[in-house]
Design a protein around this nucleic acid. Structure first.
Length: 251
DNA sequence: CACGACTCCTGCTGGC
DNA sequence: TGCCAGCAGGAGTCGT
């Protein structure tokens, strides 16, 4: 029993404007996730949602008036799943079941391993980077080997692993990749534990704010002392993205 | 195939 | 105090 409302024509891509018709009185059968894509499964297809960098979903009582950046509602009974996305980097897409498994969707097919699943191992990471000459930070961000490691957690994970972000991925040893795998898992688990917040305007599913986590090791700490050795944290640009690291702790 | 540059969008920050 | 350029971020697309 669902109904759909759009309040804009698009976010990153045009909204599937036939979604209200497609989902009328349909039931969500299951929910899932692949990388940073959220999946709402119906019998005849899947709604794919991405929050971009500023998006958030809330569950509200239906009847609550939408605010400025509330662009998409999925009403289920007396409640509402509402997507707000000020910077509009997010997405709402539809993948019909008749087009095959949603994992084969063009945006999902090329995604790398899930970092919190067993498949993500030092051996496979090592193997998949043998032909990658780009700096490890960029390879982590690329998403085709491992997903879920964004700009902040890439810097944080490399710090934990003691790896310099500029090192070419194919020059990193298996032993050091083992450290990196552990570092990524610990970093992501800690982030989830802390509410996963990265932006100052972060809000939880009920709309509560205040989760903002500032206990980063290196991210955003340019010129401040390394929490491990006191050396001042360095900031560089890699592929137009800021990278933070400690020159002494990360070789 | 691998990889770099560019792009989307808007709120916030820093400089004047 | 006000204005505006620049930055930030996820990740797809295009050119090399």
């Amino acid at each position: 029993m669902t109904s759909v409302t759009f309040r804009h024509t698009s976010l990153r891509w045009p909204f599937p404007l036939d979604l209200p018709t497609l989902l009328a009185s349909r039931t969500i059968r299951d929910i899932g996730r692949r990388g940073k894509y959220l999946l709402l499964h119906f019998d005849h297809g899947t709604v794919i949602i991405h929050l971009g960098m500023s998006g958030h979903l809330r569950i509200l009582d239906s009847g609550i008036a939408p605010q400025k950046h509330d662009y998409f509602d999925l009403a289920v009974g007396s409640q509402l799943l509402r997507l707000s996305d000020p910077r509009r980097f997010g997405a709402v897409l539809w993948h019909a079941a008749e087009d095959g498994p949603v994992e084969q969707h063009i945006l999902l097919a090329g995604l790398g391993m899930e970092p919190l699943e067993e498949v993500f191992s030092a051996q496979i990471l090592y193997q998949k980077t043998r032909n990658r000459a780009a700096p490890i930070k960029q390879v982590l961000l690329a998403g085709d080997i491992v997903v879920g490691v964004g700009n902040i957690y890439a810097s944080e994970s490399l710090f934990r692993a003691g790896i310099n972000p500029k090192i070419a991925a194919h020059r990193i040893s298996l032993a050091r990749y083992a450290l990196l795998v552990d570092a990524i898992r610990i970093t992501l688990a800690a982030a989830i534990e802390n509410g996963g917040s990265t932006l100052r305007d972060f809000v939880g599913v009920n709309g509560q704010s205040g989760y903002f986590q500032q206990s980063y090791f290196v991210y955003g700490r340019t010129g401040f002392p390394c929490r491990n050795c006191g050396t001042l944290i360095t900031q560089i640009k890699q592929r137009q993205r800021s990278t933070f690291y400690c020159k002494k702790c990360q070789k």
